[in-house]
């Protein structure tokens, strides 16, 4: 049974695209057929992070408008043959996305893939609402700072109101992915602590990704963090997050904190 996951945040620059690529690659490494879909029409980035920018022929808008068939637009990853990319168009804008077109593409993707990971654009407008529209699960990417947390809260409210599931009276399963976390700065009080973010957002946590140079390095290499160096701290955080997303129980670790403290956070599932 295919699962549609939207990676969203409201705020820009928190790591949605990086997280989409990393989670997509991590799920594909589990030998589950995965596609990452870029919804950021006009400002596409996922192709760069996936290292596929030189192989784009057709894109999501072409498929929606019927200029190309879905298999023509899908790009298979060179490193993992279970991983695919459906790129966005750079020359169009978000108005090219139609609700009917997106629905049709999603239905077709559901037939062929185990995981469909939608990279939402920032904001709460058309692009973002269409990206979340068909989601079964949502990964809310949040940085430990107040503006990101408030924007995430707004997005959670929209997930409960504007998605297909919400309209059917069901719920979108929501997961918090805390990125760019710096334990030292959180301890100093420059950043919100994990507990503070969880208390405000009250959704379950699937991972804490530490602030790391490895993320930028991987992006510039055109490789998802989890493929570039699977032993790096952010890669391990994403690999664990992907396992949790798939339903496994994995103990939570807070980067840079001592073990004794972990028990407090481990297994924490806020209301």
């Amino acid at each position: 049974m295919a699962k549609v996951v939207v990676v969203t945040s409201g705020k820009g620059g928190v790591g949605k695209t990086t997280s989409t690529a990393a989670l997509g690659a991590a799920l594909a490494q589990r030998n589950e057929k995965t596609v990452v879909v870029d919804f950021d029409v006009g400002l596409r980035n996922l192709d760069l992070v996936m290292g596929a920018e030189r192989r784009v022929v057709y894109d999501l808008v072409n498929v929606i408008q019927g200029d190309a068939k879905l298999p023509q637009a899908l790009i298979r990853d060179k490193r993992l043959d279970t991983l695919f990319l459906l790129p966005a168009s750079q020359t169009r804008d978000k108005d090219s996305l139609t609700p009917e077109g997106v629905e049709r593409v999603m239905e077709e993707l559901r037939k062929h893939f185990d995981w469909i990971i939608c990279d939402s654009p920032a904001g709460i407008e058309r692009g973002a609402t269409l990206a979340m529209r068909h989601a079964d699960l949502a990964v809310i990417v949040t940085n430990p700072e107040v503006s990101s947390v408030r924007d995430s809260d707004r997005i959670i409210g929209l997930l409960d109101a504007k998605t297909e599931r919400a309209e059917r009276g069901e719920r979108v399963e929501k997961h918090l992915l805390l990125t760019r976390y710096d334990a030292v700065r959180a301890e100093r009080g420059d950043m919100l602590k994990v507990d503070d973010v969880l208390e405000i957002l009250s959704i379950p946590l699937i991972g804490i990704v530490p602030e790391s140079m490895d993320v930028l390095k991987a992006s510039n290499l055109g490789a998802p963090v989890t493929l570039a160096d699977s032993s790096s701290a952010p890669a391990r955080a994403y690999l664990d997050a992907a396992r949790r997303l798939a339903g496994e129980t994995v103990p939570m670790t807070i980067p840079g904190e001592k073990r004794g403290f972990l028990g407090k956070i481990f297994g924490r599932r806020a209301a």
């Binding site: 107040v146 408030r150 924007d151 809260d153 707004r154 409210g157 409960d160 405000i200 009250s202």
Partner: peptide, 26 residues
């Protein structure tokens, strides 16, 4: 449920009870 940022609960007829938090911007 928690009242999320950007949401409004408007009830001129009487009392409102929220079992949960009311977010910044709600």
């Amino acid at each position: 449920e928690p009242v999320r940022s950007g949401q409004s609960v408007i009830f001129p007829e009487g009392d409102v009870t929220v079992v949960g938090s009311v977010a910044s911007g709600a």
